[in-house]
Nucleic acid binder design. Structure first.
Lengths: 223, 223
DNA sequence: AAGTGGTCTAGACCACCGC
DNA sequence: CGGTGGTCTAGACCACTTT
């Protein structure tokens, strides 16, 4: 099954846009339709997505123009779920335990009797610690046969594809037991990102606390 | 000039969605087209926007359903630009000065000789300090007659409508001179949000540093 | 077989802009 | 005036799921 036409057009346009300089006009939608031998609505769908992603901008009644590269939409706070660099993980804990802490109960909507699968790991890039991640799954939502399947358990992108991601940013002093793991001085302020992935029907799938090393990871977004 | 049909449909659908419970199915696109006496493509545009905003979710080949309210897309980190609560501002500084600090020069792309318009203010909600905002404009980009026009200068939404917003989140210890203004103890960790609004053609319009009071403002987003 | 969302077409009219 | 993006229509075919 071939990719939809509008996606093929979009890919071609991205390549051509990259050859142009900022603020250069692109062809009008009617001309693009001729060029790609498609209907105007189809090329318009491709252009709309490129505008949404910050590759292009429109000026009504005038035309469509190449956007400055710095204006491309991005969000590094979701990078834990779409990291482009080769990250290696060092596992600190991997266990099933009763739900001890209240934040885990609250975020996963489970009682103190229910147990959770916990994974705690350090994300390393070239020997430099990027962050420490505490990941909690409701034990009951994981089939027994998947318990040892790290690849499947930690395939965040597939969770997000079927769900929704909520993030909270909390300023804290780095916890003492994590300071040396992150190679930070004690009393260093850091940002703790609390992530909850919820399936479309509203059931929490996982809760993940990310203690970010501010010297390595800059949280930024363009919207 | 009346609003576009798809926006009228969208507004009506929002009201009807609010009467439904999570995961309830809505009418199919073809039935919606009949109901609203519009073409399927038009109702589809309305539905698409509601899906993008998190009001609905689609399940391919099955139908479209009401999303859990907690999954509505939002982002309180841009609240300085779309604050829903009645915020009062106390001005601390309002002056034109040489560009002293390097971060301002770098973010606004101006040299140390150029001057900037600076506004420093405390955002208060019911006597409680929410944040301190340091706002810098390139002096040259502001017409003389607008210099005293606070409403126009600080109408962030109009900037964003013609531009793009970039944000960086930096964990810091609250600066001592701001600690008492925010009613925080010294050494409290806070999140400094650095905002740059850039016009579509790439020119920086303003640079704004927001020192958030973590006891008052929670930065969270659902995406 | 019937129904769903996903894609696509070939037109059309509008408001607005620059010439 | 001609060109632009913005909206809208009335069809169509597809892959897929449910009955």
């Amino acid at each position: 099954m071939a990719a939809p036409i509008y996606l093929q057009i979009k890919d071609q346009m991205i390549e051509e846009i990259q050859q142009l300089s900022a603020n250069a006009p692109i062809l009008s939608e009617r001309d693009l339709a001729v060029k790609y031998n498609a209907s105007r609505m189809t090329v318009r769908k491709a252009v709309n997505e490129l505008v949404d992603e910050g590759y292009l901008y429109r000026d009504s009644n005038k035309g469509t123009f190449v956007a400055d590269e710095r204006l491309h939409k991005r969000n590094t706070s979701v990078d834990p779920f779409a990291e482009e660099r080769p990250i290696k993980y060092k596992i600190l804990y991997f266990d099933i335990k009763a739900t001890s802490s209240k934040d885990v109960q609250d975020r996963l909507f489970i009682s103190s009797e229910e147990s959770v699968l916990r994974i705690v790991r350090v994300a390393m890039f070239e020997e430099r610690p990027q962050s420490i991640e505490e990941i909690y799954f409701p034990r009951l939502s994981i089939p027994d046969e998947d318990l040892g399947n790290f690849k499947k358990l930690l395939d965040f992108n597939s969770y997000i594809a079927h769900g929704s991601l909520s993030q909270t940013f909390v300023p804290i002093i780095v916890p003492p037991q994590y300071a040396h793991l992150l190679k930070l001085k004690i009393n260093t302020p850091i940002i703790l990102v609390e992530n909850v992935i919820t399936s479309k029907n509203g059931k929490p799938l996982l809760y993940m606390k990310v203690f970010n090393n501010p010297n390595e990871k800059v949280i930024e977004m363009t919207l």
